[in-house]
Design a protein around this nucleic acid. Structure first.
Lengths: 205, 205
DNA sequence: CGGGATCCCTTAGGATACTG
DNA sequence: CAGTATCCTAAGGGATCCCG
């Protein structure tokens, strides 16, 4: 509830008062993938202190960005319609941030939700629309995702499963998304589908 | 130089490590309007402590977002090309934040730079392209701006000067940009140009 | 066990004064 | 004008504990 304010009447300051606190936009990032429970958020944001997560969830609720929903036995948090409007901003930050990144440092982790957002950031609907529907199962370090591309539509689900191409990339997301696919190990499927993947997902280097 | 990190290999966390600290994006906001000196930034962000401004400027330089330029006698800060790529994100936050705003509280100020960004946020190039070139001089509380609309191009300059329409709006930016123009006082020019202004600049309510 | 609340300590941020 | 220096408060970090 702190919301220390900037003393200006401006959309940018207002936005930063709502979602500019530390960790807030990362909670939004993960909720953009889908509703999440407290413990799921805590593990996806593994370094967030528990008191801070609780505080942010309250602030984001008060701001009308998220909603707390008791579902039989468990509680989930989900974005409101207003919160979902942050998607282009979060994806914009994702694309912008990637340009400043080099190789992952050893202590840096990749979570399924952050990887999902990275894939959405890199997804090129125009390129995909020109290609046949294709499914991929990728292991990005510990995060395994099932990726379904059908025309300009992208679906990403946690977990593996059969797919046209199954590959593992050992957390080298960056090389994966910049088109350097040397380090990728193909586990099943036609290796030439890797080129299709590279045409479908692309981040500027 | 703190750049407390989130421990994740993700574009969003990387972006937030570069520009997610308090005040950082507001410095970027003002520099999007043009190069600014230390004292200009300090007065545009009137509540920022001097030590924090100095710290942020160093961090943003180290991040490659801004550049420090000694110009005969004075020093100015300007965005790098990489920093300028934040424009759509800042404008996105501006539009998103406006939706959560109500009337300005008495202690909230409007600065020329923040007002310029608000106008850029509200500018509708498509609507403007269909209208004849028009110039406006508006007083938004203490901030006076000269606004030149020529087809899909928008130019905003500090200060007044002759224009097709001169008006004053007493800090009621919100009503101005949501189309409620009752409170606007026309000082010179054809009052019907107010409707043209309303068609050119529009924020969702 | 999920969903927090509490405690203590560290550090960033705020207010103000001062200097090259 | 363009910053440092200082002091103090409040937010963040880390661990633990609690409750339904």
């Amino acid at each position: 509830m702190a919301a220390r304010d900037y003393g200006q009447y401006c959309g940018v300051t207002q936005a930063l008062e709502l979602v500019g606190e530390r960790w807030a936009l990362l909670i939004v990032r993960d909720l953009l993938v889908g509703p999440r429970r407290y413990s799921e958020l805590a593990s996806g944001l593994h370094r967030i202190p528990s008191n801070i997560l609780a505080a942010r969830l309250k602030e984001l609720q008060a701001a009308g960005v998220i909603r707390r929903i008791p579902r039989s036995r468990v509680i989930v948090y989900e974005l409101t319609a207003y919160g979902r409007e942050l998607e282009p901003i979060v994806l914009g930050l994702s694309a912008w941030g990637f340009k400043a990144m080099d190789s992952p440092r050893p202590e840096q982790i990749v979570t399924p939700d952050s990887m999902t957002i990275s894939l959405r950031t890199a997804f090129r609907p125009d390129a995909a629309a020109a290609l046949p529907p294709t499914s991929y199962t990728g292991s990005f370090g510990p995060a395994q995702l099932h990726i379904a591309v059908d025309g300009p539509a992208l679906g990403v689900q946690r977990g593996g499963g059969p797919a046209d191409l199954v590959f593992a990339s050992d957390a080298q997301i960056r090389t994966l998304l910049t088109g350097e696919l040397d380090s990728v190990r193909v586990l099943s499927g036609d290796p030439r589908l890797l080129d299709r993947f590279a045409a479908t997902f692309r981040l500027a280097a």
